[in-house]
Write a protein that binds this DNA or RNA. Structure first.
Lengths: 106, 106
DNA sequence: AGGATATGTGACCTTTTGGTCACCTGTCAA
DNA sequence: TTGACAGGTGACCAAAAGGTCACATATCCT
C-alpha cells in the first residue's frame, strides 16, 4: 500500500475521523485520554491511532510512559490540491461561504 | 450510512480516485469511455461510479442512451475546511508551494 | 422492425477491515 | 523494589467492500 492510499483509507473510518476532530480541537493528547471519549476498548483506539500515524495524518512524541498525538494537516491539503485548482478554489470557497451565511440566517 | 461517510468511503478506493482524476482532467465522460481506460469489467466500473455519485463527488446527466459524468469539487473542499482553519491554511499552502519549488530545482 | 450499442440489477464469492482478547514491556512513585 | 499505570503485539472472528457474471432495459441507426 502506497503512502497516498494509506491517507484515504485512514480517513474512511468514522472513529478515526472523530479522533482527528478531537486533535483538531486540541492536540497533544494521550491514548488514554482519547480512549476515554470512545465506546471502545483501548486496543481498538490504539489500532486506529496507528493507522492515522502510518498515514502521516497524526504525528507523535513520547514523553516518559505517555505518547502524545498531534494532527498533521499537510496530507489533507494535498487531497484538496489534487482535485481543486486555483481557479476552482475561488469559486467553491465563495460558494461555501455563501452557504454558511445563508444557514446562519435560517 | 450518512452523507459524510459516503464521501470518505468513496475516496478510499484507488480505482475511484483514478476515475476522479480522469474527470478532473476532463469531465462529461461516459461509462464506456471510462471503462476503456481500466483493466476491469464494465460492471466493476459502473459500481464504482455509482458509489461516487451517491457520495456527491460525481454528478451525472443523461443524454440519450449515454450517461455523462462530471466532477463535483464541493465535498473535497468541505473535507479541507473540517481540519484546516484559515490560519493554518496559509501556513500549509505556503509550505507545499515551497516544497513544489524545491522539487522543481532537483 | 430489428440488430447493435449503452447502461442497469441482483446474486455470488473472495479479500480486507474493525474490533476484542490474552499476554507482554517500559515507566513512575511510594 | 514492587505494585500500579501507560502503552504495545499477534491471533482471532464477524462484517463490509471489491469484483465478476447471467440476465434485463432503453436508445440509436439503417
Amino acid at each position: 500500500m502506497d503512502d497516498e492510499d494509506r491517507v484515504f483509507k485512514a480517513l474512511a473510518d468514522p472513529t478515526r475521523r472523530f479522533l482527528l476532530d478531537r486533535l483538531f480541537e486540541r492536540d497533544g493528547r494521550t491514548l488514554s485520554e482519547l480512549e476515554s471519549e470512545l465506546e471502545m476498548t483501548r486496543f481498538g483506539v490504539m489500532k486506529h491511532l496507528r493507522v492515522l500515524e502510518d498515514a502521516g495524518l497524526v504525528v507523535t512524541r513520547r514523553q516518559g510512559r505517555e505518547k502524545l498525538h498531534f494532527l498533521n494537516p499537510v496530507p489533507i491539503r494535498q487531497i484538496h490540491n489534487r482535485w481543486i485548482d486555483k481557479y476552482t478554489e475561488r469559486q467553491v470557497s465563495a460558494l461555501l461561504e455563501l452557504k454558511d451565511e445563508l444557514e446562519e440566517l435560517a
